[in-house]
Structure formats: C-alpha cells, structure tokens
C-alpha cells in the first residue's frame, strides 16, 4: 500500500482510544462519589432511566432483581428461578469495566461523551449504590474498581465454554436429517391469539398487490 496512510500522533490516539477492558487497561485515573453520582443521575439520567433506575419507558431497567446473596455468590438467583419479570442491567453485567466504559462513551444517550471522568466514576458508583452493591458514602476510583467488581451480583454468571464464538466451533445440538415418518406425534403447540391479530397493523397492506398470495385483512377497512 505504498504511499497510503500515515502514523497516528499521540494526541490522536488519546482522542479516540477510550475503551476500558475487564482487566482495567484503558481506565483513566480518577474517582467519583455516590453522592456526586446522585446529582449527575438526577440531572442527566433519571429522565430516561427513572429516579431509581427502574424505568421501563425508554429502555429496560438498569437496577433491580438482585439480592444481597447474589452479591456474595456472584450469581443472580432470579436468573435461575425466573422470579424477576425482566432482566435488568445489574442482573447481567459481570464486569464493572463494561459499565464504566459504556457510560463514558455513550451516555447520556442524547449527549454522549459529555461527562467528565469524575462524573463517570460517580454515576457508576451511584448505579451500584441503587443496586445495593456499595454504600451511600462509597467513592469509586481506579484503585478500587477491581475490588468493587468483585461484588457484582452476576460476576460469576458467564460461561464461554460453548462452540458459538467462531464459525469453526462445535455446535451444541445435533439434529438428524430424518426424511420420512419422523415425528408422528408432532402437533401445533403455539399460535397467535385472536386478540393479537391486529397488533401489527393490516397485513393486507404489508403484502404485494399481485403474486401467489395476498396479505390477510387484519384490520377492518373504512368502507368495507
């Protein structure tokens, strides 16, 4: 590629290389308190995510569904017994770097990359505080990120021993290519309930005017 590209300047790499890995490579030094985080949250986050991180309006809830036991085991019990109606962020996230990195790069949603490093530490701390992971006086910093991560309710909740990362991985199921008399007991076990028929609008208007088929009328049309 003779003549193409040029060496990046240190300032350029700094401007864009903002990612933070689970081993905290990339994490800028700094700190932020739960107290300060609450201010940030109420001013800049609560409108979308709810005062308690519970809102289901703009996105699924950030906080909820975890217990003190989960913090001890690092496994969220409600993921197993299905006792929580929805999976919140804190029920899933195994790595604190992930939260820090994502808030730093993407939040607030309509003004990403507008937070200071201190504000990112602080609001991350406040989310953990709302989830009962840290206390009200907690100050999150680069020195205690690892220790705090060790309290995440679902930190032990991931497995990577599956064959689905690479196309060359081994599949987890093996169907047989049966060609006749395969499933004598097969029957319909689920279908759209009648009340939901119109939930996706008038399907007639979502199919072509010609062709082998027409769309089914699912919404009564004016004048018909």
């Amino acid at each position: 590629f003779e003549g193409l590209g040029r060496v990046a300047t240190p300032a350029e790499v700094t401007a864009w290389d903002i990612d933070v890995r689970p081993d905290f490579v990339g994490l800028p030094k700094g700190s932020g308190s739960v107290q300060k985080g609450m201010e940030v949250w109420d001013a800049q986050c609560a409108s979308c995510h709810g005062v308690f991180g519970e809102s289901n309006e703009i996105f699924t809830p950030i906080v909820g569904g975890t217990s003190v036991t989960d913090i001890q085991t690092g496994r969220v019990q409600s993921l197993k017994d299905g006792s929580s109606p929805q999976r919140t962020t804190l029920m899933k996230v195994p790595t604190l770097s992930t939260l820090w990195d994502y808030i730093n790069r993407a939040m607030p949603w309509n003004a990403p990359k507008s937070l200071s490093t201190e504000e990112v530490y602080a609001v991350t701390a406040y989310i953990l505080n709302m989830g009962g992971v840290v206390g009200d006086d907690f100050v999150l910093s680069h020195t205690n990120m690892a220790a705090t991560q060790a309290r995440l309710p679902n930190r032990n909740g991931m497995q990577t021993n599956h064959g689905m990362w690479l196309p060359s991985g081994k599949p987890d199921v093996k169907e047989t290519r049966c060609m006749s008399n395969c499933t004598p007991d097969a029957k319909v076990i689920s279908f759209m309930p009648d009340y939901a028929k119109d939930a996706h609008g008038n399907l007639k208007d979502q199919n072509r005017l010609v062709g082998p088929v027409r769309g089914v009328v699912t919404v009564a049309q004016a004048g018909t």
Binding site: R75, G157, M158, T160, W165
Partner: peptide, 18 residues
C-alpha cells in the same frame, strides 16, 4: 457483557456467542 449474551436454563449466560 450485558446484551448478546444467551441465558441458559441453569441461570448462566453464554458470553461471546457470535
């Protein structure tokens, strides 16, 4: 780490399923 992780019946998520 929060999405595109697949919840299995044992309550564990498969991570990096791609």
């Amino acid at each position: 780490a929060i999405h595109y992780i697949d919840l299995m019946p044992d309550g564990l998520h498969r991570q990096y399923t791609s």
